[in-house]
């Protein structure tokens, strides 16, 4: 996770080679895509763990409730919609800064961050209500795997929000100029990746019926 931010904040490093790069593509972007490829295996591991454990209930009455018993699909659908729309606003932010339209860039960055905030708020709500309904983290393998998977995703989104807010402040201070659009693009790649992971989670974890 630290690396995501590093890659994003290290964007300035790409200016080193005066002669350009061998492949003609930006170092930072290449590193970011490599990192995202690597993240596929991280989330793949967590998702597989959940899939393996999704119906594993613990012994004893208090340990038997698993996440699929209490899923609130209508709410999660709204959350998914929120995150999906934040991907749209993210790409619009990038589009705005490549045009040099700074007010619009800021508007979209802030909108994206706020939508992300609503998503995380929704996740806090979801976790709280699940716990109230009897799915404790330590109750059974299914619940441990569920909270760990969605929690990891949530942490990724939260880090993304902090990055977006930082870009927003930088833009406000006039430090995010048009030629820095790649920084926005890098943060955007991260953000869309997190969205793509959620597309996967929403279908495979929430929607596919357990029988």
């Amino acid at each position: 996770m630290a690396t995501a931010t590093d890659a994003a904040v290290d964007t300035a490093d790409h200016g080193h080679d005066d002669h350009g790069t061998s492949t003609g593509i930006s170092n930072t972007k290449l590193a970011m895509w490599g990192f995202l490829g690597s993240e596929c295996l991280l989330f793949g591991g967590l998702i597989s763990t959940y899939l393996l454990y999704k119906t594993r209930r613990g012994p004893g009455p208090e340990n038997t409730v698993i996440p699929t018993d209490v899923f609130d699909i209508p709410f999660t659908s709204v959350s998914s919609f929120v995150l999906l729309m934040s991907s749209l606003t993210m790409v619009l932010a990038l589009s705005a800064i490549t045009r040099g339209d700074h007010p619009a860039t800021r508007a979209w960055l802030l909108t994206t961050a706020m939508l992300g905030g609503i998503f995380i708020g929704g996740q806090v709500y979801e976790f709280t209500s699940f716990i109230r309904e009897g799915v404790g983290y330590t109750h059974n393998p299914a619940s441990s795997a569920f909270y760990t998977l969605t929690g990891f995703h949530g942490v990724h989104v939260s880090l993304g929000i902090v990055m977006l807010m930082s870009l927003f402040v930088a833009s406000k201070q006039g430090k995010l100029r048009q030629e820095h659009s790649e920084t926005v693009e890098i943060v955007g790649l991260y953000w869309h990746f997190v969205d793509v992971v959620w597309i996967f989670i929403f279908t495979v974890i929430y929607l596919i019926p357990v029988d």
Binding site: M114, G121, G122, Y125, I161, V162, M165, F168, V169
Partner: peptide, 22 residues
């Protein structure tokens, strides 16, 4: 200041939103 302010702003939104939803 920058990350702290950013994080604080988001924390407020997240906290407030989740309380309303709950």
């Amino acid at each position: 200041e920058i990350p702290a302010a950013g994080a604080a702003a988001v924390a407020v939104v997240v906290l407030a939103a989740s309380r309303i939803l709950l």
